[in-house]
């Protein structure tokens, strides 16, 4: 806790200063322990000088060396990052178009389109996963043995399908705060439609594009279930690879790679926080069902 709110301890806490009541402190500690003990254990044992992950036998970096020499693991990580980058780019474009159109235009069947765009957000992952499995097995078999990264196409398509509606939701929410008069002024002053969009609309939209991109990237990198149904033997992603390693046995190598990935996540989060300022209000919709959360915020 920081200094300004610390009062002399003899004074009784105010009625709503719940943070100063000990049961609340205990509860927060409990939640923090629950959330962080597993992660901290994972990090600590990644430095353990033992083949097994049970007893502490001294500090060592050998699992990191081993993990970084594990070609299959690195290839999977490379695949994951490539897929995430490609699906983020496509999702941002499609999501921005959809969000813009839904904000801007009125057209027949709009509620229907709205509902359809919300579907990928609410449909259970497993259903979308089997849908993709069936689709790529029957309708559009993805050619085998393509050169990298074209062989990842099927997974990228699947990831875009569940990511871009999230971007659309974020973009649309952002555009709600757009002042149409700015646009009219630009048109008045002689800017054409494209110029107006480029110089007036896009700059307003850009925080949503950044937030949407971050969201799409995380969703893609994190996805296991849908990828599990779309990937083949030569297109293994990081989560799928870790899954097979965990199924096989619990090895400290997984701890090491996980620690690296977590460090990367923390770093990216910190950078994002710095770039976007106070993130909390904006990160609330970062769930599988942002519509419900967004509704909840506006109602």
């Amino acid at each position: 806790m920081n200094a300004p709110l610390r009062r002399p301890s003899r004074e009784r806490p105010g009625p709503l200063e719940y943070l100063r009541a000990w049961p609340m402190k205990a509860w927060i500690c409990l939640v923090a322990l629950f959330l962080y003990v597993p992660l901290i254990t994972l990090v600590v044992f990644s430095f353990n000088d033992s083949r097994r992950t049970v007893v502490w036998e001294g500090f060592s970096l050998r699992h990191y060396v081993k993990a970084l020499n594990n070609d299959a693991l690195l290839e999977a990580l490379g695949n994951s990052l490539t897929i995430a980058a490609a699906s983020t780019a496509l999702s941002v474009i499609l999501g921005a178009l959809a969000g813009f159109a839904l904000w801007r235009f009125r057209f027949p069947g709009k509620p229907l389109v709205d509902g359809a765009l919300g579907l990928p957000i609410v449909v259970p992952e497993i259903c979308l996963g089997v849908g993709m499995l069936v689709f790529f097995a029957t309708v559009m078999p993805w050619p085998r043995g393509l050169v990298w990264p074209l062989n990842l196409g099927a997974i990228i398509i699947a990831h875009v399908s569940f990511s871009f509606p999230f971007v659309a939701v974020v973009v649309r929410a952002r555009m709600a705060s757009f002042n149409r008069e700015m646009e009219e002024a630009a048109r008045d002053l002689g800017a054409g439609e494209w110029r107006t969009i480029r110089d007036i609309v896009l700059p307003h939209m850009s925080p949503a594009l950044a937030a949407g991109a971050l969201l799409a990237f995380t969703l893609s990198l994190d996805d296991f279930v849908i990828t599990f149904f779309t990937s083949g033997p030569d297109t293994v992603t990081f989560p799928v690879k870790v899954y097979s390693m965990v199924r096989f046995s619990v090895t400290p190598e997984v701890n090491a790679v996980s620690t690296l990935l977590m460090a990367l996540t923390v770093l990216l989060t910190a950078l994002a926080l710095r770039a976007f300022g106070d993130p909390i209000a904006r990160t609330t919709p970062v769930t599988r069902l942002p519509k419900a959360a967004a509704q909840d915020q506006t109602s």
């Binding site: 597993p38 992660l39 254990t41 870790v242 619990v250 997984v254 701890n255 990935l261 989060t269 909390i280």
Partner: peptide, 25 residues
């Protein structure tokens, strides 16, 4: 902000990694 970050941070960690961490615990 810090308390919210406390719940958000594990959420940004890969689902598979979190599940694996639970196995070890």
């Amino acid at each position: 902000v810090w308390l919210l970050l406390l719940v958000m941070l594990p959420f940004w960690t890969n689902l598979l990694i979190r599940t694996y961490a639970l196995i070890a615990v």
